[in-house]
């Protein structure tokens, strides 16, 4: 999916005007990207269950550490997201041993305040 839509992901951040100038079919590209990401999120949720806020937190973190271009950001987001989940899972298993706290609950508990804080800090 990514190679098919890579060019659009590179050009669209420059804004609608520029995208139109170089001949990107704006409406079609936006719809296709939206549909792809929605479908991929749906598949991931089906497979792993609802893990809130990781998807919101990881790309912003990637942006924060200075990865702003489409492809590197995609890779960094995947890595950061995976790292957060592994950490949350580990924390969930050890925090209140021998009971387990679901990783999804932990990410929501920690992730949502973190996200709000990051959004509030943005100038």
């Amino acid at each position: 999916m990514v190679p098919l839509q890579m060019r659009w992901l590179e050009i669209l951040p420059l804004g609608g005007t520029v995208a139109k100038v170089v001949g990107v079919p704006l409406a079609r590209a936006r719809l296709a990207l939206l549909a792809t990401s929605a479908a991929m999120a749906a598949v991931a949720t089906l497979a792993a269950g609802p893990l809130s806020f990781v998807s919101l937190l990881a790309p912003h973190l990637a942006c924060r550490i200075g990865v702003t271009r489409a492809l590197p950001q995609l890779a960094a987001t995947a890595l950061i997201g995976a790292a957060i989940m592994v950490f949350a899972d580990w924390l969930g298993r050890n925090l209140y041993f021998p009971f387990q706290i679901p990783a999804g609950l932990l990410t929501s508990l920690i992730g949502s305040p973190a996200l709000v804080w990051m959004l509030a800090r943005r100038p």
């Binding site: 098919l4 839509q5 590179e10 420059l14 170089v22 001949g23």
Partner: peptide, 11 residues
């Protein structure tokens, strides 16, 4: 290089 998009296209 993005200016070359109309020539090489999306894929």
């Amino acid at each position: 290089a993005l200016g070359r998009y109309p020539w090489y296209g999306a894929i």
